[in-house]
Design a protein around this nucleic acid. Structure first.
Length: 126
DNA sequence: TTTCTCACA
DNA sequence: TGTGAGAA
């Protein structure tokens, strides 16, 4: 029953609503789109129409930023997320060994640390 | 009225 | 990222 997923992907929200829902400025929302972090549809009059999935995505991005991760980092996270999705398919045929899993988790931690932005506007001087 | 794109003292 | 201009 993936009826819900379809509805969540229906782009029906104008940027104004998204601004209120995510507490982000139109500027930021458009910028994130430029960075390919979100891909809202376009409707009549070239207006952006967002879906519930976009909202979740935006909120997620907000959290990442709050954790001190920068655009590049977030892009990587989604890039890896995509890779994982693709890897998952391959893994279906060839399951990972315990040793592989450990190595992957190890890398994950190291990389997450590298994604922390080196003191930016997200690091209050307090 | 709302949103879009573009450009910057 | 903010902000203002000019158009739709």
């Amino acid at each position: 029953m993936k009826e819900k997923e379809l509805r969540r992907s229906l782009a029906v929200l104008p940027i104004g609503t998204v601004m209120k829902l995510t507490d982000l400025s139109a500027r930021q929302i458009r910028y994130y789109e430029e960075q390919a972090l979100i891909t809202p549809e376009r409707n009549a009059g070239n207006r952006r129409m967002f879906s519930l999935n976009d909202i979740d995505r935006l909120l997620e991005i907000k959290d990442f930023l709050a954790d001190g991760i920068n655009m590049a980092g977030i892009k990587e996270i989604y890039a890896r997320q995509k890779q994982r999705a693709e890897q998952k398919q391959a893994d279906l045929a060839k399951p990972l060994t315990d040793r592989d899993v450990r190595r992957i988790l190890h890398d994950e931690f190291l990389n997450l640390g590298g994604l922390q932005s080196d003191k930016g506007p997200n690091y209050p001087a307090r």
